[in-house]
């Protein structure tokens, strides 16, 4: 289910956010579509779209595979001179014990390619990860023009 929130903050232009629950592969499709739609609307190039939507696919799938469920929030901002958006992937899953290790290309605890995290970092302009063992994981990516 989606929640819409429209917050206009103190003269700093406006930001609009959308949250999508991520709990199944269908939700991954929805997450990808939402980001693609937004990027299309903001006139990002097709290459940019492919690049970022691929990362969105990786990070939302990680929520399902490694944490079971979580959510993605898209925050669009349009501030003086800067137009862009952030996607926040948040879950209350098991968390990651060693972030450096998890970020390493080819590292996977599920016998997969282990490219989701390292790849997403390379694909996005901005990438930050926070994770606490037993508490959950929060990953934020950002794109702007």
């Amino acid at each position: 289910m989606e929640k819409y929130q429209d917050s206009r903050d103190s003269g700093q232009g406006q930001s609009v956010s959308t949250t999508i629950f991520v709990a199944s592969y269908e939700d991954v499709i929805v997450a990808r579509q939402k980001v693609r739609e937004l990027m299309n609307e903001m006139k990002f190039s097709l290459l940019d779209q492919t690049r970022v939507v691929t990362a969105v696919s990786e990070l939302s799938r990680n929520i399902i595979v490694h944490a079971g469920k979580g959510e993605m929030t898209i925050i669009k901002y349009d501030e003086s001179g800067r137009r862009g958006f952030r996607c926040i992937f948040e879950d209350k899953g098991p968390g990651i014990a060693d972030i450096d290790l998890a970020m390493r290309e080819g590292y996977s605890t599920t016998n997969s390619l282990g490219l989701g995290l390292s790849g997403s970092k390379k694909l996005c302009k901005n990438f930050s990860i926070q994770s606490t063992r037993g508490k959950g994981t929060r990953i934020e990516i950002a794109e702007w023009k």
């Binding site: 492919t50 690049r51 691929t54 290309e105 490219l115 390292s118 390379k122 694909l123």
Partner: peptide
């Protein structure tokens, strides 16, 4: 082309 570029960046 867009996909192969992305795949390279992803590390595939």
């Amino acid at each position: 082309a867009k996909i192969s570029q992305t795949l390279v960046q992803l590390g595939v």
